[in-house]
C-alpha cells in the first residue's frame, strides 16, 4: 500500500512563488499524470516528490510519514534523458541498485548472490525487450531502448513510487507508442503507483487513471511572480470502480479458462 499526500505545499525561490498551496492525496496503485503549460512548475512538483528540492512550506507524506530530505530508494525515477550510466553495460546498469544495497563497501556481489541477481536482471531486461542487448553500452541503444533500460533499472529496486519526468518527450512516435504499452503493462503487473509529468494531453488521458492540471489560477499582470501555480483541475480519468470491475472480469475469465483446462473432456465426467 502506497499513499502520497501533499499538505499545503508551497515552493518559492526568493520572492518568486512557483507553487502555492498544493493539496493532493493519491491512493495506492494510481497512475497520476501532471499536465500544464511549460514553465509553470510541473517538474518542480516532481522534484519536490523526489526530494531533489525541499518545499518552502507544507509537507509531503509517503504512507503517512514525511519523505526523506534527499532522494532515496523508495522513489524510483526516469528522466527525459541521462537516466542511465553511459560507462556501464546494459546488464550492469540494471544490476546496480541491488549491488549497491547488498554490498556497501565494494558495490559488487559475488558467487550465488551475483548469479541470482544476474538472472533477475536478465528476466527484467527480457520483460522490457532488451535481453539481446545486455552486453551493449547505452550509447549503442536508440532513445526508446535507453528509456526501457532506465525503467528496468528503476524497477529492479521495487520502488514504492515511480516518478516519470517527460519520459517519452524525446522519442519518435513509434517508440513512444510502444513505451506507452510497456509502461501501462508494468504499472498493472507490479501494481505500483506512478506519477508522470508530461505536456502531451493525449498521452495524459491515455495512460493516467487520474490527471491533474497545474496552472496559475490567480495572476497579477504587474507582478507575475507573486502568484504561484496550483492544482487547477483534477480529473478522474479511469475511475477505480471501473478498473476494479475490469480486473474482476479478467480474473473471472482466467479462472474459467483454468477450470476448462483442468477438465479437458466433459464426457469423462459422465463415465
Amino acid at each position: 500500500m502506497t499513499e502520497i499526500r501533499f499538505e499545503k505545499v508551497w515552493k518559492e525561490y526568493g520572492s518568486s512563488i512557483v507553487l502555492e498551496n498544493v493539496d493532493l492525496a493519491l491512493a495506492d496503485h494510481e497512475f497520476l499524470v501532471v499536465i500544464g503549460p511549460s514553465g509553470v512548475g510541473k517538474t518542480t512538483l516532481l522534484r519536490l516528490l523526489l526530494a531533489q528540492e525541499r518545499p518552502t512550506r507544507g509537507r509531503i507524506l509517503l504512507d503517512g510519514r514525511e519523505i526523506a530530505s534527499e532522494p532515496t530508494a523508495d522513489r524510483g525515477v526516469v528522466f527525459q534523458r541521462y537516466s542511465v550510466f553511459p560507462h556501464k553495460s546494459v546488464l550492469a546498469n540494471v544490476m546496480l541498485g541491488p549491488q549497491w544495497a547488498g554490498s556497501p563497501l565494494v558495490g559488487r556481489l559475488f558467487g550465488a548472490r551475483k548469479r541470482a541477481l544476474r538472472d533477475q536482471a536478465m528476466a527484467l531486461l527480457d520483460r522490457v525487450g532488451l535481453a539481446e542487448h545486455a552486453r551493449k553500452y547505452p550509447a549503442q541503444l536508440s532513445g526508446g531502448m535507453q528509456q526501457r533500460l532506465a525503467l528496468a533499472q528503476a524497477l529492479i529496486n521495487k520502488p514504492k513510487v515511480l516518478l516519470l519526468d517527460e519520459p517519452f518527450g524525446a522519442l519518435d512516435p513509434g517508440s513512444r507508442r510502444s513505451m506507452h504499452v510497456l509502461v501501462r503493462e508494468l504499472w498493472e503487473e507490479q501494481s505500483m503507483t506512478i506519477v508522470m509529468v508530461t505536456h502531451d494531453l493525449m498521452e495524459a488521458f491515455h495512460l493516467g487513471t487520474r490527471v491533474v492540471a497545474i496552472d496559475k489560477v490567480r495572476n497579477d499582470p504587474q507582478a507575475p511572480e507573486r502568484y504561484g501555480a496550483t492544482i487547477a483541475s483534477d480529473f478522474c480519468a479511469k475511475p477505480r470502480i471501473v478498473r476494479d470491475s475490469f480486473r474482476f472480469e479478467a480474473a473471472r475469465l482466467r479462472a474459467a479458462a483454468e477450470l476448462a483446462a483442468k477438465t479437458p473432456l466433459l464426457t469423462r465426467e459422465k463415465d
Binding site: L50, Q52, E70, P71, T72, A73, R75, G76, V77, F79, Y82, S83, V84, F85, L96, G97, W100, A101, P104, G107, A150, Q153, A154, N157, P159
Partner: peptide
C-alpha cells in the same frame, strides 16, 4: 539523482 534513487551512498 538516479544513483541516489537506486540507493547509492
Amino acid at each position: 539523482i538516479k544513483a541516489q534513487t537506486l540507493g547509492a551512498s
